[in-house]
């Protein structure tokens, strides 16, 4: 514990949407407790500190840093390194920092293609001269520098050491509060922290355990996209041909999505001991397709299989919606890269 008064809390927002900050604020009146217990050392969303302030802190000054957002550009990486240096406990907070999340899907394409989409080829863009961001720009006032946009999105643990991970897009407020309570207990009362490297603020089985829909044996003839059917609200969505990542996703969210009829998207990431969430879901899905039995004509099986596979739109984007940057392959190979 810091000897300069209350423990210091930081929260930083790299490549992400900002939902994680909202989720922290969404712990409702408990935010007052946070304020009571911690001193805010850096939290651009709610308090006005500058990077130079952080640089001025001694190493290890911050007791707890909640780092959210993925590493998209050089600034993200520099901030990760800076905060690592200044923090005792570095937490990858939320899916982006943990495994790349939605921004990580851009790993399926190239940096150039991403920039093209964002700055050139989009109906809402007005960029007649086709100007793209450049790291250096010689302005009359001098050379301006902006961060370098990376080819590959990375997760936090791929650039700095991470002590804990809180999954979720965003993490559920009740889970955040549980984690904060545990940290506070450790800081103030000397309670034990979980072993370093743990995933905290989540369950330890798959979402299905929390899901109240009725589950039966599964045999899927085809998949539907959510707009194509109105699901039966009592029955496992997968069994109805709706893609649900629940079986391959860590619990802790309370199965919010499937219970309201929307298949789990997989934001809490894989289960402990599973290296690749997407591959696991892929194999599970393929396992329960109702195509192919001994005795059937091979060409016919192939035809049926192609037909049902066609109903799985964008398998990579579906199975790795959140975990692309943290998966085995991490990114697609585009133009030899």
């Amino acid at each position: 514990m810091s000897d300069k008064g209350k423990p210091k809390l930081a929260m930083y927002w790299a490549s992400g949407c900002g939902g994680c900050e909202i989720a922290v604020l969404n712990i409702q009146e408990n935010i007052l407790v946070v304020d009571e217990v911690f001193d805010i050392a850096f939290f651009p969303c709610i308090a006005d500190f500058k990077v130079k302030d952080v640089k001025g802190y001694p190493d290890g000054y911050i007791d707890l840093c909640l780092f959210n957002g993925a590493i998209r550009n050089s600034e993200n990486e520099e901030m990760a390194q800076l905060l690592r240096q200044k923090s005792k406990v570095m937490v990858a907070f939320g899916s982006c920092a943990y495994e790349g999340c939605i921004p990580g899907l851009s790993n399926l394409t190239s940096k150039e293609a991403t920039l093209h989409t964002v700055y050139l080829d989009n109906p809402t863009i007005d960029n007649p001269e086709g100007i793209l961001p450049q790291p250096f720009y010689d302005a009359p006032e001098g050379t301006l520098e902006i961060p370098v946009f990376y080819h590959t999105i990375k997760s936090l643990d791929q650039v700095v050491d991470v002590d804990y991970t809180i999954p979720g897009c965003p993490p559920e407020p009740h889970q955040i509060w549980t984690v904060l309570q545990a940290v506070v207990a450790a800081l103030l009362e000397g309670a034990d922290l979980p072993p370093a490297g743990s995933i905290i603020g989540a369950g330890n089985v798959a979402v299905c355990q929390e899901c109240t829909l009725k589950k039966d044996v599964k045999k899927i003839e085809r998949f539907y996209r959510p707009y194509e059917v109105i699901p039966d609200r009592e029955v496992c969505l997968l069994e109805q041909g709706l893609m649900c990542m629940g079986p391959a996703t860590l619990s802790g969210c309370g199965a919010l999505c499937p219970i309201v009829g929307m298949g789990c998207r997989g934001c809490y990431g894989p289960l402990d001991g599973v290296e690749d969430q997407g591959a696991k879901m892929l194999t599970a899905i393929a396992s329960i397709l109702g195509v192919g039995k001994p005795g059937e004509d091979e060409a016919e099986i192939e035809r049926q299989l192609d037909a049902v596979m066609d109903t799985i739109v964008d398998p990579a984007g579906t199975f790795y919606r959140f975990s692309m940057a943290h998966s085995l392959l991490r990114r697609a190979k585009v133009n030899g890269r």
Binding site: N204, V205, K215, D216, V217, K218, C236, G246, I288
Partner: peptide
């Protein structure tokens, strides 16, 4: 402890070795 009762595996076994306990899921 790791089984969530999703029942993906329930149709995998042609030897009927896989059984599902409804009560404990």
């Amino acid at each position: 402890e790791k089984c969530s009762g999703c029942r993906i595996c329930n149709t995998m076994c042609p030897f009927n070795a896989i059984l599902f306990h409804e009560d404990q899921m």
